[in-house]
Design a protein around this nucleic acid. Sequence first.
DNA 1: AGGCGATCATCTGTATACACTATAGTCATG
DNA 2: CATGACTATAGTGTATACAGATGATCGCCT
Lengths: 245, 245
Amino acid sequence: MPAEADRKRLQRASQSPAPEPQGSTRSAWLTEHLRQALLDGKFPLGSRLNEVHLSHQLDVSRTPVRAALHVLAGEGLLRYHANKGFVVRDLPLSEVVVAYEMRALAEGLAARLAAERGLSDESRRTLEQALAEGDAILSRRLNREVQRAAYANLNESFHSTIHAAAQSDLLNDVVRACQRMPQAAAHNVMAFELADVRERHKAHHQIYLAVLGREGQQAEMLMRAHVLSVKSSIVRSLARRDGST
Amino acid sequence: MPAEADRKRLQRASQSPAPEPQGSTRSAWLTEHLRQALLDGKFPLGSRLNEVHLSHQLDVSRTPVRAALHVLAGEGLLRYHANKGFVVRDLPLSEVVVAYEMRALAEGLAARLAAERGLSDESRRTLEQALAEGDAILSRRLNREVQRAAYANLNESFHSTIHAAAQSDLLNDVVRACQRMPQAAAHNVMAFELADVRERHKAHHQIYLAVLGREGQQAEMLMRAHVLSVKSSIVRSLARRDGST
DNA sequence: AGGCGATCATCTGTATACACTATAGTCATG
DNA sequence: CATGACTATAGTGTATACAGATGATCGCCT
């Protein structure tokens, strides 16, 4: 099939110049691509990922595909069984609950460490900006959809700044592990009531003050409670979805 | 080099029959082998693992070696950088501290879940056996070395039974992630004072009773305190080592 | 002499061919 | 008709060759 070879070369040439500063290597690009697809729910839960199909579909060989799949399995998005390949991890609701309880503990610890270790000027600015933007978004009356997307962004920014301030790779890994569920991607935040979001935004303010004031225990407790409230919302919406399915 | 090919065939033939029911595949075997080597500290911290050397040394091709390394990187034992390969993760003491605090929270959660979900008859038996053996080992006067190894085993058994009873893969992953540090392998328990071990064994008894009695909160608190006491011992011994180096 | 760039060795990244395993379907047999 | 072994096929496991990147060494130019 000489035509296929041509197609490959063309595609490579067209995709290499601009779009991926991140994916210096094909494996890295595939990992990112597949992770996003998994979080977006593009593969059915529990379904098997066929290496040959994927490599044809994405126009690379099996080697980088396998590498990417191994990485994603390491991250917990996939499960691997010898001689049977990779399947999309399907977490029962009970596991989602545990993940959020774990995440509450982990983020609480992160908040405490951030408080103990102090905020850099840059972190402080980022947090303050996230809070201010949140105030603005929630006070104005906007399209629900726009409001939601904007708030999801700064929510992400707020939390990851706290994690960074904790200065622990390990802790970061754990938090990310708890977030990496094919079901509960960040955009699930959408499903919430506006009142819930306002409440949580108030919690962000309190957490910020506790961290800034170096009150470790206070920061830890506030963050735990904050994440647990997110858990309640998620579980509520998942239960609704499961029930209606 | 035809001689080399012969050697390979011979070695494969001699190693396939008996020794590895676990390693159904070369990758799996390599993963296990390398993980053990890393936890045992056989590779210097921060050192780079050369795929070609490893594959020659272990008499396999690079392919399964790479697979194993990817898995271990996913587990956090190695770090991977594009085009630069895998290096043994070197955790500063502060990270070890965080890991143990995280693990205390995670194992606490596991203990609570185990209490809430109840113990199977088999789990109960395993725990009781671990406790009884611990009593025996600690009461008799034995060679320090033997005593230590025996206790390490049943300690492992006790904890992993609790994790299993929690019935959460996710939680298991987190706990294992916190244990997987090139420094702080299980056998570090060796370095401890006998008095510390006795104290911890008493804690095992208390935890068992709390779990058996379905007292979730109590179990969680006891387990947290238990793991934190291990942290103190580990940190003490690591600090001593770092100081003397 | 010192900085700078080309060249080369080394190692990782990828493609591909082949070997092995698992599974489903078929056929024969009780 | 049910059950068992056999075979065919699809898909993963591994080896190997080659391509691309990285880093060091050596020579050149200033």
